[in-house]
């Protein structure tokens, strides 16, 4: 596809894509898990020290 060097070009792009995807997906999974954990903790009635009202909460 890209001349004699296809065997080097394709792995480079694949590896880059893999690393980028892993970074993003890993971060997103982490984020999701933390949001669920916070929701769970809040449900069981625990509040943060600095949390006086819930108005500035988001997500």
């Amino acid at each position: 596809m890209f001349g004699p060097h296809t065997a080097f070009i394709v792995p480079s792009y694949l590896a880059t894509a893999a690393v980028i995807l892993i970074l993003v997906v890993w971060t997103m999974i982490e984020h999701k898990a933390q949001r669920t954990e916070i929701a769970r903790l809040e449900k069981s009635g625990i509040k943060r020290r600095s949390d006086k009202s819930d108005t500035n909460r988001h997500g």
Binding site: V24, H31, E37, I38, L41, S44, K47, R49
Partner: peptide, 20 residues
């Protein structure tokens, strides 16, 4: 930014658990 957000949430969970 996404990782910073995660880190903040992680610390928030930590404090919440400690308060609990």
């Amino acid at each position: 930014l996404m990782k910073m957000r995660n880190e903040i949430l992680k610390r928030r969970i930590r404090t919440m658990k400690m308060t609990a």
